[in-house]
């Protein structure tokens, strides 16, 4: 089953602002990270997935349903946690989550039971009977997560769930999201502008920029065979770069360092040979693990 699939999905506001441009992506169930800078089109994509915004053109399917023609069926199986403040301050978390559970079609007693159960799962116990207005940001985020979970959806759409949290709160929230995706058996789409955060918990990563798809792939595919060798010489960096390029090594400069993809063991010999031939003082030669962030970096200028 495909969890979410889009085909040439485009959304423009008033014919001028382009939020999504020709986005084609398909992801399997699991924990999906949707990364992109602010204004990259993440929230627009979520609203289209929920059937709240009609796309300008293109097709979209969520859980094999079409949100443009049957939004109610999609929303019945999806839980949404918005980015912004969304809680009435004078209600208690228990009352609010119960009410929203009923709004999702749960019978009255079931809604009450599931509300307290989900609040417990997100880590709110006795405090759930106090008005939300007195909660910390971390507790409010947990309530927002609980209301998205209360009706037991098959897919959670989380828009910047770590917004406004301190480092410990971020870790706790990410751990919780990871637990939902693995132990609860619910697929999760996590939106974030912080790649470093989502890459820790995701199976699949979708990166968008300016409404365009940068890359979508399973995270293990992204990090494998992408190790780099970092070479640093005290002088003659340009000379060495030229020589390495002449040896058909795709060399890139990163400040005072040269980065060469590690193809096989021979790459070491080629670099050492080149350095010895030019008689340059070698400062360092070591293997660097590629971070996912760097996978996106070289592609960005072409889209800018």
């Amino acid at each position: 089953m495909t969890l979410i699939a889009t085909e040439s999905l485009t959304k423009t506001y008033g014919g001028r602002v382009t939020a999504l441009a020709d986005l084609t992506v398909a992801v399997e169930p699991g924990i999906i990270g949707l990364v992109g800078a602010n204004g990259a089109g993440k929230s627009t994509l979520i609203k289209i997935l929920l059937g709240l915004l009609p796309p300008t053109s293109g097709r979209v399917s969520v859980l094999d349903l079409d949100p443009t023609t049957d939004p109610a069926a999609v929303r019945a199986r999806v839980g949404y946690m918005p980015e912004h403040e969304a809680l009435p301050p004078d209600l208690s978390a228990a009352e609010l989550v119960t009410h929203l559970g009923r709004m999702s079609g749960l019978p009255r007693t079931v809604a009450r039971e599931r509300a307290s159960e989900t609040l417990r799962h997100v880590g709110l116990y006795e405090e759930r009977y106090r008005p939300v207005g007195g909660y910390s940001t971390g507790m409010k985020q947990r309530v927002k997560l609980a209301q998205a979970l209360v009706h037991d959806p098959d897919l959670l759409l989380l828009d910047e769930p770590t917004n406004g949290l301190d480092p410990a709160g971020r870790d706790a929230m990410l751990a919780l999201v990871h637990r939902i995706g693995t132990e609860f058996g619910i697929s999760v789409l996590v939106c974030s502008h912080l790649l470093g955060e989502v890459e820790r918990i995701c199976d699949t990563l979708v990166a968008i920029d300016g409404g365009r798809l940068l890359r979508a792939d399973r995270i293990d595919a992204m990090t494998s065979a992408t190790d780099l060798l970092a070479v640093e010489v005290s002088e003659g960096t340009d000379q060495l770069a030229g020589r390495l390029a002449a040896l058909d090594l795709p060399v890139t400069r990163d400040g005072r360092m040269l980065l060469v993809p590690l193809a096989d063991e021979r790459t070491y010999d080629l670099i050492l040979g080149a350095v010895a031939e030019l008689d340059l003082p070698l400062h360092r030669l070591d293997q660097r693990r590629h971070r996912v962030a760097e996978l996106f970096a070289p592609r960005e200028p072409s889209n800018a």
Partner: peptide, 9 residues
């Protein structure tokens, strides 16, 4: 709170 209503059926 409206987005929480409108994201439901």
């Amino acid at each position: 709170v409206l987005p929480l209503y409108f994201s439901r059926p």
